[in-house]
Amino acid sequence: MRHETPSEENPVKPWRKLRFFPSMQPGGWSGLALISPPFAYSLLMLAAPLLLVFLLSMWTQNYLELDRTFTITNYKEAASEKLYQVLMARSVVISVIVTIVTVLLAYPIAYYIAFFGGKRKAIWLLLITIPFWTSYLIRVFLWKVILGYNGVVNGSLLGMGFIEEPLTFILYNANAVVITLAHAWAPFAILPIFVSISRIDKSLLEAARDLGDGPLRRFLRVTLPLSMPGVVAASLIVFIPTVGDYVTPRLLGGTDGLMIANMIQIQFGKANNAPLGSALAVSAMVIVASISIVFVLLNRRFLKVKG
């Protein structure tokens, strides 16, 4: 903030002292006016429910009554109960695996489209969005058909004589959840990686080549570090929502594939303990946020690069 000393030519005008945001530029107010409708909307639709969940997590459920005295017993229970710990840990582990698998699969696809897509880039990107033309629920059911005991995978493997009896480790467990989530989130990972690879100046790759690097070194020393912003974005886009995924573990996870969101749903529903469910939800949010922040900090040297 600039400090101005009043002088004869430049007296401090009275209204200047009343400024709400002293450092705001002249255009600031019109900018604020411009963003206020979406701002109000997100305040209403995002911040308000969050605040409600947060409040709820500090209250207590006594059968039909809601005790509104602030307490942290829900959090204590959420943190100490073995079942919740297991579910929370499993959710994080599954999401981390999903994120790694998704990004590893998405990277070569994004790389291929960015470098070899030629004039057909738009078509490739369109093809990638095709899974979204059907609802998520239908895709989950399709995976059930593909991975099931009498499903497509087992049917073909049996038919070709590769296996004697149907594989059971691919459905109703964490593997099925990973496969389905990785497929569902792949496009969201491909797009940011594609964008960051496309933005790499091709003359940088030529410069690396000119300075003696073969294809692999060129990739490791130039392409990969410069596409890290896309990788970080893709990881966050996949990791954050999958921790709280509810449908996939419910339909494909069996009992050892259940995740924290399923427990939250139980608390809000059958168990009739919304405060505990809220505490679990807030805890999950805090954990996801902490992991994301640590992840971003670990990658900060790649993120500050200006193209």
Partner: peptide, 14 residues
């Protein structure tokens, strides 16, 4: 045994 100075300089930004 050649090296190039590119028109855009191609300085590695990272």
């Amino acid at each position: 045994p050649t090296n190039m100075v590119f028109q855009s300089y191609a300085i590695f930004p990272h």
